[in-house]
Amino acid sequence: MAGLLDKRLWVVSGKGGVGKSTVAAALALRSARAGRRTLVCEVNTQERISRFLEHPTAGPEVTLLEENLWAVDVRPQEAMREYGLMVLRFEALYKTVFENRLVRYFLRFIPSLQELVLLGKIMYHLQEKLPDGRWRFDTIVLDAPATGHAISFLSVPHVLVQTVPQGPMSREAQKMRDLLVDPAVTAAVLVALPEEMPVNEALELHAALKDKVHIRTHAAVLNQAIPERFTEADLEALAGHPELHRVAQANHDRASLTVLAGTKLERNLHAPVFNVPRLYLPTFGRDAIEQVMGHLEALVMGEK
């Protein structure tokens, strides 16, 4: 299997609480280590990734975290301003128009405008070039919102192209759609836990991305996987130790669920599944991200 490094936009999503930001941070760090200029984008959220990597938060400006790794929290107000300035070209004109109370009111109700400018900013950075003609960022890792929000967020260009009257908004949307659907550019990484709901959501997300957004699922990451430890014989032997048996049985059940979840993902996604074992570390910081990264080596670099 080819690695993610062949693609430029890596979309990471899954159910809330499955570890999307953890996986996004690990993938971004690996890309940067591979010498690619990498930008990791969070979308209007409490920033996690810069914190995981033990750097100050980036905020709404693209900020260099470490060698080859930049981060940004894409926020609606700032993104709207940047987009507005690009369209209107003059700061003074922008102020008159966009700081007008009435205009602000109208903008709030224009369908999907907010998502459009958020996604627009990400797409802008994807096409941004250095003076020497190289991409400013080789890789962009998008820590996308959770399932439902991710689908509506990423389908905005499609929806707009179909519904909005011809005009500047639909032209922007068309450009974004072309990049999103290009399998040479964009790939999705779906994150799940070995539990029923997170796996089901990953499957739903896969179907929606494929049918509505036309983004291919490159791989799934099964986070907090529990490896097999106790055999049936072990469990029988522990029958006389009820407390310990309960602990062992729970571990065994979770290991079985891990196998089940992996099989279900692989069969339905027709994509490889990478297990990241559950980590037992006192604090969740850079060490944890480095460990997760180790388990995603083949996902980023391709099979040796």
Binding site: L88, V103, P165, G167, P168, M169, S170
Partner: peptide
């Protein structure tokens, strides 16, 4: 503003 959204919108 209509430059931004289109008049029809």
């Amino acid at each position: 503003l209509s430059k931004f959204t289109g008049t029809e919108m």
